[in-house]
Write a protein that binds this DNA or RNA. Structure first.
Length: 218
DNA sequence: TCCCAGGGGCCGA
DNA sequence: TCGGCCCATGGG
């Protein structure tokens, strides 16, 4: 019952908003994987507009590489617009060190192993890890964020008590698309998460704006 | 002036 | 384990 609704909502949002084409890559496409990884840290509790400014600064200075992140003195200044720049600077260093050490092994890692590796990095929690796994490494995991929990709760698709359990929320989506191929899962998970973010920005805000919401009656 | 944004670490109960 | 606090800029 829940799955039927989850799949219908996806179709409705896609029809309404169109393809979101995530993750947005701003700088040189040859560094896109690492740029996505940086972006997942920078966007923690931060609007994407501010993250864009930071990534443009880094890109102009040609600093979107793990070695440059670790060695350049300009990083903090570049990421300043994204906020929390002291914390995020340290997180980016940790992430870069991990990437330099592991980048040749990642393709051989199973998804579960990759997840555990990412979670061992200071500054990488469940959402950030899953964003990296899905958008940088194209593995099928659903990314759960505050918008996801909010719209599920408002549509009574989860109990309030489940909201604090990241993996309970994630499993709802994994269950509903379990029969798809790996590639199809990756495609749907990427698109669905992006569509939920768009829904959250336009309609399912903290202060709800339900009047013209495309899934008002779903 | 206040609220909020594509979280996560840390600490005390 | 879990709630509360801290981190910070920029737009509405």
């Amino acid at each position: 019952m829940v799955c039927h609704e989850i799949r219908q909502i996806y179709k409705k949002l896609y029809k309404e908003f169109g393809p979101q084409d995530w993750w947005p890559v701003i700088g040189n496409k040859t560094n896109s994987k690492f740029e996505i990884m940086i972006g997942t840290i920078l966007t923690q509790n931060t609007s994407w507009k501010n993250v864009e400014k930071a990534i443009i600064n880094l890109s102009k200075e040609k600093l979107i590489s793990p070695i440059k992140i670790i060695s350049s003195k300009k990083i903090k200044k570049c990421i300043h617009p994204a906020g929390y720049y002291n914390q995020k600077y340290n997180y980016l260093i940790e992430l870069s060190r991990w990437y330099l050490k592991n980048k040749d092994k990642i393709n051989q890692m199973k998804t579960k192993e990759l997840k555990e590796e990412l979670l061992s990095i200071k500054g990488v929690g469940p959402e950030t890890a899953d964003s990296i796994i899905l958008y940088a490494f194209n593995r099928p995991v659903f990314v759960v964020d505050a918008y996801t929990k909010r719209f599920l709760e408002r549509h009574k698709l989860i109990q309030r008590s489940e909201m604090s359990d990241y993996y309970a929320v994630q499993n709802i989506f994994h269950r509903c698309y379990s029969k798809l191929s790996q590639d199809e899962k990756v495609r749907i998970y990427k698109e669905y998460h992006a569509l939920i973010v768009e829904l959250g920005k336009r309609y399912c805000r903290k202060k709800p704006n339900c009047d013209n919401c495309p899934i008002k009656y779903m």
